[in-house]
């Protein structure tokens, strides 16, 4: 009995101290990691979506808290009008967890500009092919207010052969964003307006 108790106490202590150390490290490094991923991942993605230099776009960032999730949103303005948005959200159902998707939206024409993958843990060479331009370009020009679906389910997106789960996760992420825009369009506009003033 004493021995079992000792096993439990020692193992719990080691785990507890480890968890504490990682929490401290995370609190200290989180903002730096966020900046790095803005610079190396979101910047290039925004450049591809809107064809403007990243420095111009990265500053136009808001974070919209809905539920317990923080949605990063980038915006472009022309005069006082908000013309384009890039919204980022997780798409559940990937083979290696959520795939973080960014969709560029043209608000004047209510169409998508394109889709970018911000983060994924899919199998290299299989699921990771969702990053390919040939897959991503299917999003160009899709309407903003209709959910997307894979062609096998009667939709408009051709899944990557051998990577149906990954393709589906990207579709889920897209629908997540479409839903977000449908419900919270006014909130987003209000936050951006408030930031601009």
């Amino acid at each position: 009995m004493r021995e079992i108790l000792r096993l439990i106490v020692v193992l719990s202590l080691i785990c507890g101290i480890s968890a504490g150390a990682l929490t401290v490290a995370r609190l200290n490094l989180a903002s730096r990691i966020e900046k790095q991923s803005d610079f190396y991942v979101r910047g290039p993605a925004l450049e591809r979506l809107f064809g403007k230099p990243a420095e111009e776009l990265l500053g136009n960032k808001i974070s919209l808290p809905i539920g317990d999730h923080l949605y990063p949103i980038f915006y472009l303005t022309e005069g006082s009008e908000i013309t384009e948005l890039a919204v980022e959200a997780p798409g559940p159902g990937g083979y290696g967890g959520d795939i973080i998707v960014m969709i560029g939206l043209d608000l004047r024409e209510n169409r998508m500009v394109g889709m970018e993958i911000i983060q994924h843990s899919e199998t290299p060479g299989v699921g990771s092919r969702v990053e390919k331009a040939s897959f991503r370009k299917q999003w160009q020009g899709l309407p903003v207010d209709e959910p997307v679906e894979l062609t096998s389910q009667g939709g408009q997106i051709d899944a990557i052969s051998g990577a149906t789960y990954s393709s589906k996760a990207v579709v889920n992420g897209t629908n997540h964003i479409i839903d977000l825009i449908r419900r919270h369009r006014d909130d987003i506009m209000a936050v951006i307006k408030a930031k601009g003033e």
């Binding site: 150390a21 990682l22 490290a25 995370r26 490094l29 730096r32 990691i33 790095q36 991923s37 610079f39 190396y40």
Partner: peptide, 11 residues
């Protein structure tokens, strides 16, 4: 820890 440090400084 290494993963976090690498993401923060050698992305």
């Amino acid at each position: 820890l290494v993963e976090m440090i690498m993401k923060a400084y050698f992305f």
